[in-house]
Simulated scan of single mutants.
Amino acid sequence: MDFASVFALFVITILFAVIVCAIVALGSLPGKIAQGRNHPHVDAINVASWIGLALGGIFWPIAFIWAFIPMGRSGAAEGAEVDALRKQVAQLQEELATLKNASA
């Protein structure tokens, strides 16, 4: 084998490795985004991404967009609601204690 053949084989091997790395990076991207955003459907998004790539990339954008769809309420609104519910429970416990003392 001459130098040109060895060099061509080296270039083809490097290109193949780059393509494989790019496919792996694209396949795992929606799952990583969903996991970083604490999405409740991380596993489903990850599977949809890989199946989408296996089918020629047709459904991959759906998984990518799905990873960005917000699920549930924001943390601040949820925290305020939890605080309000805790206050209600405390008031009800006080009223229950008052009723128990009045009946005894």
Rank of each mutant, 00 (worst) to 15 (best):
L53E: 06
F59I: 00
A84P: 00
G36F: 04
D83R: 15
L92M: 09
W60H: 05
A17S: 14
A104Y: 01
A67I: 05
A63T: 03
G27L: 01
I23Q: 13
V42I: 13
G36T: 01
W66P: 08
T13M: 14
R86Y: 01
M71Q: 15
E94Q: 11
V20Y: 09
D2E: 04
I12T: 14
W60C: 04
L99T: 01
R73I: 10
F68S: 13
G72L: 07
F7M: 13
G72I: 09
V42T: 12
W50T: 06
D2C: 04
A97L: 03
G27F: 03
P70E: 01
L53M: 15
I19D: 04
S74M: 02
I23G: 11
I62G: 10
Q88N: 09
L96H: 02
S5P: 00
G31I: 02
E81R: 12
G56V: 02
K32L: 07
E78P: 00
V42K: 14
N101E: 10
E78C: 03
L29V: 00
I69T: 14
G75E: 12
W60N: 06
F16P: 00
F3W: 03
A54K: 12
M71F: 13
A90I: 04
T13V: 11
A44D: 07
V11Q: 08
R73G: 15
Q93K: 12
P70F: 01
Q35H: 14
A104S: 07
A63E: 04
N46T: 12
L26V: 04
K87R: 14
V6T: 11
L55P: 00
T98M: 05
L99M: 05
A54S: 14
N38S: 09
A80W: 00
P40Q: 03
Q88D: 06
G56N: 10
D83G: 06
S28R: 10
S74C: 06
E94S: 05
S28F: 08
V24L: 13
F68G: 10
F7K: 14
Q88R: 14
G31Y: 11
I51L: 15
I33C: 07
G31V: 04
